[in-house]
Nucleic acid binder design. Sequence first.
DNA 1: CGTTTGCTTGACAGCATTCAACGTTGGTGG
DNA 2: CCACCAACGTTGAATGCTGTCAAGCAAACG
Lengths: 244, 244
Amino acid sequence: MTASLAESPIAALKIACSSCNLRELCLPVGFSKPLLERLDTLVATHRSVRRGETLFRSGDRFEAVYAVRAGFFKTRVSPHGGRDHVTGFQMAGELLGMDGISTDRHTCDAVALEDSQVCLIPYAELERLSREFPELQHQFHKILSREIVCDRVMMFLLGGMRAEERLAAFLLDMTQRLEERGFSPTSLLLRMTREEIGDYLGLKLETVSRCFSKLHDDGVLRVRQRHVQVLDRSALAQLVNEAG
Amino acid sequence: MTASLAESPIAALKIACSSCNLRELCLPVGFSKPLLERLDTLVATHRSVRRGETLFRSGDRFEAVYAVRAGFFKTRVSPHGGRDHVTGFQMAGELLGMDGISTDRHTCDAVALEDSQVCLIPYAELERLSREFPELQHQFHKILSREIVCDRVMMFLLGGMRAEERLAAFLLDMTQRLEERGFSPTSLLLRMTREEIGDYLGLKLETVSRCFSKLHDDGVLRVRQRHVQVLDRSALAQLVNEAG
DNA sequence: CGTTTGCTTGACAGCATTCAACGTTGGTGG
DNA sequence: CCACCAACGTTGAATGCTGTCAAGCAAACG
């Protein structure tokens, strides 16, 4: 099964936005038929990225944004000499690379945390098409704006919450996004290491591990390495809310 | 609406983007004459906001973005019951309110920290005009993208830096933005309290105060209440860089 | 001139980091 | 099949930074 997927060239599968099962999560939410057809011709290129490889790197020329078709990514900045900071995790149906618009160059690395496929959306053509279709224009603006709002939530988390509350918020966010994609919101398989979670939440890996153990002991989670079962979702929510 | 226009002496001044001294910092960077003229008709309304008053509040319907014409703002989220989190400070030439695009409602409060004036840019018309002018479209996208990049820098700061390093980064950012506006980069008058700086940097006001004292004692700053003189800018930069 | 608000400083407590040791897992090659 | 290694994860003890609580001071305002 994995063999047939890996061997078949993605492009040959003729993935089209109009028939993609992610279209109601991704860029084309609620688009009309004519626009969907135009989008199909725009989003013609696809790329496979193996686990551990980068989709783009900080400093690369910005030419396209990417939609995650399958798999899982992290974005990170690596201040030379310093430890990484993970700016986000992206799963199927989410867009990547919009940070590059401002300077025409990417400002972070995008790394696949498992074998993944992305759809390439040429940026110049996206701007051109969105001048023609107000619905596309507005949707793209909404996605950019949502990115800003999510970053603000993250800033609040980093600035105001304690370790256990941060981890609770992280887990709630992950389960919610998984649920939107039709997966169980109570059972998740983490694709990232404790260190990557720490680099995302502004914590050391030991602290992340300790918090997992604490939530396990408190009966909120069942943790076995990267398998996490959420036993008491309301307890997580309470941790996050009490933080305010 | 006509009442507020009448009350506002600003509107009577017939401020136009095409003749605004901030046009090379604000939205219309490098715009052509025809576009500037169209923008003049779009940005027809202006508002005065007195110190302490809000320009918009979380939950308000999103109808326009605002350009700071004069004065100084903070944006904040106030989780009910919890302490404020300041998401940013905005000075002349900067845009406010783009967080509202994603949900059609503002997600934060914008509060004037001194008597201020803003230009109102109706959002629907901005979208319409940017379908006509690719340069406007691209510039708006760049502004949104820059917002994302700045937020990422802030996340790195909150997640990875210690108190003194955060304050150094904050001061460097402020002086740089002041310099771009033609002010001295070594002498600044803070418009916000220690508590507001703390709510922005994820620190308590006492810690902010202590860090100011420390930098003062180290000969990096001269601090007298809200008057700050930067004596050794490279020392600030070094603090920030060593943090990586 | 008194009140309010904001700022500074000290002592102490608490939480996260640091340093270190050990356990687990999965892959590789003998 | 097993041994071994490397990467990842867990846990303990000690340190250190920031928060908390409290007191006093300075500046702004009516």
